[in-house]
């Protein structure tokens, strides 16, 4: 005689054991570069990104029971990193926009990405990589945050749009659109004869 509810509670033959701390550490080490890219893309700060990934690891460890070992660890942690990074970004935006006295403050003119400026590729000596790299980083700051993360995952990690979508929790078509639009923004900023274009 069989009892459906009892069978339902039995582990299936293909299900994997729950992830323990040691297993988490191993998966985390493998995923750390990818997770760092997500954070760096969202907050546009490689050092803060490191802190965010560590903070996300603490969150991940705390929620280890909720991780289904039959699913993708990178996607699970990627979403946690994205969530933590977005929170940091929101906090930072709030602190920039509002001073202690509540009066709105703005970044000084010529500060940050604007101040960094972009050296058009055509003005650079061929092979002078450091200068070009700086210009590329400045251009990257002009790209919206999720698009930045998509671009880094696509370009640096070589992920497919389906993989990016899974990791960031967005549709694959949106990931593709982010990458295309973001790259276009960067090319426009790095093209020597930058001319205003109609919207």
């Amino acid at each position: 005689m069989t009892d459906g509810s009892t069978i339902g509670r039995l582990p299936g033959p293909a299900s994997r054991p729950r992830l323990d701390r040691r297993g988490f550490a191993a998966h985390f080490a493998d995923a750390s570069h990818l997770l760092w890219l997500i954070a760096a893309g969202i907050v546009a700060d490689r050092h803060l990104a490191e802190d965010i990934v560590q903070e996300a690891a603490v969150v991940g460890l705390r929620k280890l029971d909720t991780f289904d070992p039959d699913t993708n660890f990178n996607a699970w942690m990627g979403r946690i990193v994205r969530h933590v990074a977005m929170n940091h970004r929101r906090k930072r935006q709030r602190s920039r926009e509002t001073g202690l006295d509540g009066a709105p403050i703005h970044a000084p003119a010529g500060h940050g990405a604007e101040r960094e400026g972009v050296t058009p590729a055509g003005q650079l000596a061929a092979g002078h990589e450091a200068v070009f790299d700086d210009s590329v980083l400045a251009a990257l700051t002009a790209v919206p945050e999720t698009a930045r993360a998509c671009i880094l995952l696509k370009t640096v990690k070589g992920l497919t749009y389906d993989e990016i979508a899974d990791i960031l929790g967005i549709p694959a078509g949106t990931a593709m659109s982010h990458v295309h639009r973001g790259r276009k923004i960067m090319r426009d900023r790095l093209t020597p004869e930058r001319t205003p274009r109609p919207a």
């Binding site: 760096a40 560590q54 640096v156």
Partner: peptide, 15 residues
């Protein structure tokens, strides 16, 4: 981007 964000430039992180 690969030069700036490649695995060799990324911080070494452990859980």
């Amino acid at each position: 981007l690969c030069r700036s964000f490649g695995v060799e430039t990324a911080p070494r992180m452990a859980a």
